[in-house]
Amino acid sequence: MSAMTAHERVKAARAPDRPRVRAYIADLFDDFFETHGDRLAGDDAALLCGVATFEGRPVTVAGNVKGIDLDSNLAVNFGMAGPDGYRKLQRAARQAEKFRRPLVTFIDTPGASPTASAEERGQGEAIARCLFELSGLKTPIIAVLTGEGGSGGALALGLADRVIMLENSVYSVLSPEGFASILWKDASRAEEAAGVMKLTAEDLLAFGMADEIVREPPGGVAANRTALMRALRGVLRRTLDELCALDTQTLLAQRYEKYRKF
């Protein structure tokens, strides 16, 4: 494994040519049917939900949506979901439980949307309720960190039975910019922040917050998407098999203990 600095990992995690959630869905699943809306107020384009099959078995899929250029990013608020997105996820999660489908989430967000309208509609409550729903959801949950995972906005999709991180994904309490801004009142010290935050996949695996790292093909994930997807497919298959073999009581007890120990 190359000796990349934490800051270089953050840059790699945010690379504009890194596969986005729809690429993972296209390559890993069949029959994807996107389900829109939170049934309360709106439909958040920054957080996608739907139903698909993974090697024949139905699964619920959810993920942060990022663009690849300015226009496409403006359309999805740079991957920062608002309360409508988190409530759409809650709806999808409850249906996953009802129809006994595992839930697979793909995380790639700098954080939850910090706007006035998000606050008016209860951003904090929406994230908290995701944690509440997922912690007791009676079906297996797998979270895959594909790019950057920032703050509660990422954790809302990340409370899972298994957390899988791509080699160059990062996961942190806040974006390095936000962290530097809060602690040092200087967002420009993000590189220094990344160095002390311990946000790489290796760090998270050592902490027990990630369960497995999927190595990225030499030459990069953009140029070698097929190899990346083949590796991830294998991990998903094995993980789904493991989790689906557990009875619900054991699954929930293990999930509780997974977070209780921190």
Binding site: L131, L155, L159, M197, L199, M209, Y256, Y259, R260, F262
Partner: peptide, 13 residues
């Protein structure tokens, strides 16, 4: 860092 974020999951669970 992330240990603080995990407290959100722990308390909510």
């Amino acid at each position: 860092g992330m240990f603080s974020l995990m407290q959100m999951a722990k308390t909510s669970a």
